[in-house]
């Protein structure tokens, strides 16, 4: 394993770990608030490891939604990973099967964004970098979930500390980081319309998959560039 790559991965991942720590704490706190034990919350963070869907699952569990519907909702929120792993494949074709297993288990939004950035600008995606980046997000995520669950009852109303605005703002930052890409504005516009329409007509959490499908469909229908463009990705870390 390349030491430099590991260190570079750990550094990059640490930035994500710090910016996602509030969400891990939020998840833990909300989980306990909705009837999970501290251990349940930790096991969920360790095995599901997908923040937004964990929060959706907890929310539905608190409303006593049928278990199969909770799992289906988590699947819907995470559906984007199917497209992530498809797009990631060309950059990690040199991984061994076991390395691929860990790579896909650790495949989160920032992991995907950062891997594609490295793949496209020529630095390449080595397993050393990928694992360093992934684990330096994974363990803090687990740790802060536990911390949040432990102190959950002490936070009180998340609105008072404006914890609730952090999640959409964080996701907005991720979206904006792609604004240099071809077709960014039509795609974002289409996804916005699609998700809002689905939110009111079909309901949450389907607005995620439906809105995304509308945006991706628009991207597929946009005119193809005449020559091969080099997408200049200016993705931010958080």
């Amino acid at each position: 394993m390349n030491r430099e790559d590991v260190i570079e991965g750990l550094k990059g991942g640490a930035i994500i770990a710090i910016s996602s720590a509030p969400f891990a704490i939020l998840f833990g706190a909300v989980a306990v608030d909705n009837g999970l034990s501290v251990l349940d919350a930790a096991v969920m963070s360790a095995t599901v490891y997908a923040g937004a869907s964990q929060l959706v699952g907890i929310e539905l569990f608190g409303h006593h939604v049928a278990p199969w519907l909770i799992v289906l909702s988590i699947f819907a929120v995470n559906f984007r990973h199917i497209l992530y792993s498809a797009a990631l494949t060309r950059f990690i074709s040199h991984f061994s099967p076991i390395q691929k297993f860990f790579a896909f288990f650790l495949l989160t939004d920032p992991q995907f964004a950062e891997s594609v950035k490295r793949g496209e600008d020529g630095r390449g995606v080595s397993f050393a970098w990928y694992l360093g980046f992934g684990l330096s997000i994974y363990f803090p995520w687990l740790f802060f979930s536990g911390v949040g669950a432990w102190f959950g009852s002490m936070i009180g109303d998340p609105r008072t500390l404006a914890i609730d605005v952090l999640l959409p703002t964080y996701f907005m930052g991720l979206v904006l980081a792609f604004r240099q890409r071809m077709g960014f504005y039509p795609v974002v516009f289409a996804s916005t319309l699609g998700s809002i329409a689905a939110y009111h007509l079909v309901g949450s959490p389907w607005h995620v998959s439906i809105g995304a499908a509308v945006g991706v469909a628009v991207a597929a229908l946009l005119p193809l560039p005449a020559s091969e463009p080099k997408p200049i990705a200016e993705e931010a870390e958080a």
């Binding site: 939004d109 959409p168 991720l174 699609g194 998700s195 509308v214 991207a219």
Partner: peptide, 15 residues
């Protein structure tokens, strides 16, 4: 082209 649009499309639906 569609795959390249995936991250922005999905994240927009959360925003």
């Amino acid at each position: 082209q569609a795959l390249n649009a995936v991250p922005a499309a999905v994240l927009t639906t959360l925003v």
